[in-house]
Simulated assay, not measured.
Amino acid sequence: MNTARKNGSLFTKIEQKIATVEFGHPASNSFPSELLERLTQEIHSLSQNDEVVVIILQSEGKNAFCAGASFDELLAISNSTQGIHFFSGFAQLINAIRVCSKLIIGRVHGKTVGGGVGLAAACDYVMATEKAAIKLSELSIGIGPFVIAPAVERKIGVAGLSELTMAATEWKSAYWAKEKGLYAKVFESDKELDAAVEVLSLNLASYNPEALVELKKILWKGTEHWETLLLERATISGNLVLSDFTKKALAKFKK
């Protein structure tokens, strides 16, 4: 599947019961609404695909893994309806990953900001390179990581979420993320990362699919309320993005 380049790109390859889903965008693999919606639809589709046992989620290029929300789209939001709709895109994507019947491996090759951290946190198992530093910069632009916070907290706890959120201008290293539980393993190079992702995905693909489905259910037990919680959080962000503080901060950041 491919999208128009201005709205990002999305490609899925299925081999040996493994679906590799790669998203991309010229602006550091950030997410406009259309790309969020397409990735959400793709996760739902793969969840129902009997030819797929495990999913690898990755982004294109050699630089950033994901810069989070599209700044151009954030700047274009002019009313609460548009704001809520945009942030609901992240809510729906995280919920699609949560209810997906397949285990999802995150391959994080570079720096990750905001919604990208939430995306990584939503994956069932994440491997990264030492270049994959993380940052939640939302407070610095007048909003907060409200939609993704449940996914991040689930992986690194309230203390980790608090530290990451309040140090809004500070990069945390990939090794910090591993220590906190966001990443399972960190590698020195993309080559080592790819080799490890291949071994894990092939192993998982060789296991009993029914056992993997049951494991997925256990891993996400207690998150059923996210269906409404994340949309409620999207309303908070959707309203805050309209503030003068946020508009000025976004414009300054873009320059």
Rank of each mutant, 00 (worst) to 15 (best):
K191R: 10
F187P: 02
A184E: 11
K172W: 12
A196F: 04
A159P: 06
G160Q: 11
V158C: 08
G181L: 07
E192I: 06
E192F: 07
G160A: 09
A168W: 13
G181A: 07
K191N: 02
K191H: 09
K172N: 07
Y183F: 15
E188C: 04
F187V: 04
T165S: 10
L182Q: 07
G157S: 11
E163F: 00
A184Q: 12
S189R: 03
S189A: 05
D190A: 09
T169L: 14
A159K: 03
K185D: 02
L161I: 07
A177H: 11
E188Q: 08
A177K: 13
A196M: 05
L193A: 02
S162A: 14
E179D: 15
Y175H: 11
V158T: 15
V186M: 08
L193K: 01
V158H: 10
V186P: 05
L164C: 14
K191S: 08
A168Q: 14
V197K: 01
F187T: 01
S189I: 04
D194G: 10
E163K: 08
L161M: 12
E192N: 05
G181W: 09
M166H: 12
L161C: 06
L164H: 12
L164T: 12
M166R: 11
F187S: 01
V197M: 02
T165Q: 10
G181H: 08
W176E: 01
V186C: 10
L193V: 00
Y175W: 09
G157Y: 06
A167F: 05
S173V: 05
K185Q: 13
W176N: 00
L182D: 11
G157D: 09
A167N: 14
A174K: 13
K180D: 01
K185G: 00
Y183E: 00
S162Y: 12
A184C: 08
D194S: 07
K178L: 05
A184D: 04
E188N: 09
L193Y: 03
S173E: 02
K185I: 10
K178Q: 11
G160L: 12
A168R: 14
V197E: 02
E170L: 12
G157N: 06
A196Q: 05
L161P: 02
A168Y: 15
I156N: 04
A196N: 03
W171T: 00
A174H: 08
A168G: 03
K180F: 01
L161N: 05
E170C: 03
G181V: 08
W176L: 00
E179I: 03
Y175S: 09
M166V: 09
G160E: 11
I156E: 04
T165I: 06
D190V: 09
A184W: 06
A196T: 05
E192A: 15
A168K: 14
V186F: 15
A196W: 01
K185C: 04
G181N: 08
A196C: 03
G160R: 11
D194I: 03
L193F: 07
A196E: 11
S173Q: 10
T169C: 05
F187N: 01
A196I: 01
E179N: 15
E179A: 15
A174E: 09
S162P: 00
M166F: 14
K172S: 10
E170R: 09
D194H: 12
A196R: 01
F187C: 03
A174Q: 13
A195M: 07
A195K: 14
L193M: 12
E188Y: 07
K185V: 10
S173W: 10
